[in-house]
């Protein structure tokens, strides 16, 4: 019998893609994270959830190497694809979708025009996220959902082993958020990518995550959604309106 494809193996069968051991981080004098020990299982979709101010984005930034931290983070991946929160992007920059995808990998100055190969590559990546019709559109004129898909195409263009998404649903309606998650899940399965996302939408987390880390400055609980997304745990972390924290 043929060996199972990597994405069909149980996420826990291989060493975690990322191991966090007693990670801590400060913002000025304030402790934002302390003693965070968690793992990002290989080939799975991990969601980091928690109330406002729990340190979710801080943890993600430590993982990405953007913030100094204490403790150790063991990274077992070669290439990383990152989709930042759309709020941090400069959308007034004159830049089309195909240009954004090209500057992420090519050093041929964009003012000499895009090569045929660069255009074809950009269109293929955009097609993968159902956005090939957006190739020539300036990013400033795209809707939130369209921009999210272009950013996802940019991250996938790096052929990542680990895909990191920071609040992919911010500013999207339920349909847009679900579409984004479906595209990500599809890409993850086809390419065997490990995924981490920070999310505040517990419905989406329940539908798409294989592994959940519940954070409130430290790890309150981690494991499959069935063991973390239970009312007594969520009530304790979020209060009684935890479903949409």
């Amino acid at each position: 019998m043929a060996a199972p494809l990597p994405f069909l193996e149980a996420p826990w069968a291989r060493p975690p893609t990322v191991d966090l051991h007693e990670v801590g981080a400060m913002r000025g004098e304030v402790t934002v994270l302390h003693d965070v020990t968690a793992r990002i299982p290989h080939g799975a979709c991990t969601a980091i959830i928690g109330p406002n101010g729990a340190g979710k984005t801080t943890l993600l930034r430590c993982l990405l190497g953007l913030l100094p931290h204490t403790g150790t983070i063991t990274r077992r991946f070669e290439r990383l694809g990152y989709v930042p929160q759309r709020l941090t992007l400069d959308r007034s920059l004159p830049l089309t979708a195909e240009e954004a995808l090209t500057i992420a990998v090519s050093d041929r100055p964009v003012f000499f025009g895009l090569s045929k190969a660069a255009r074809e590559r950009a269109r293929a990546l955009l097609a993968e996220v159902c956005a090939d019709h957006l190739a020539q559109r300036p990013l400033g004129g795209l809707s939130g959902g369209e921009l999210q898909r272009v950013m996802l195409a940019q991250a996938l263009g790096r052929e990542p082993d680990l895909l990191v998404l920071d609040e992919p649903g911010t500013g999207l309606d339920t349909h847009g958020h679900r579409l984004c998650c479906d595209i990500t899940a599809d890409a993850r399965k086809r390419r065997g990518i490990t995924q981490v996302m920070v999310s505040h939408d517990l419905d989406i987390v329940a539908a798409h995550a294989d592994h959940v880390i519940l954070l409130d400055r430290t790890v309150l609980r981690q494991g499959p959604p069935s063991t973390v997304l239970v009312s007594e745990v969520l009530d304790r972390a979020f209060g009684r309106h935890g479903a949409h924290a």
Binding site: G65, P84, D90, L95, I103, D107, R108, P109, F111
Partner: peptide, 17 residues
């Protein structure tokens, strides 16, 4: 040129990638 453009678009994204 392209790298400076990437930096202007999102400095964190440019650094992470």
């Amino acid at each position: 040129w392209n790298r400076l453009l990437a930096l202007a678009f999102d400095p964190d994204l440019a650094q992470v990638h």
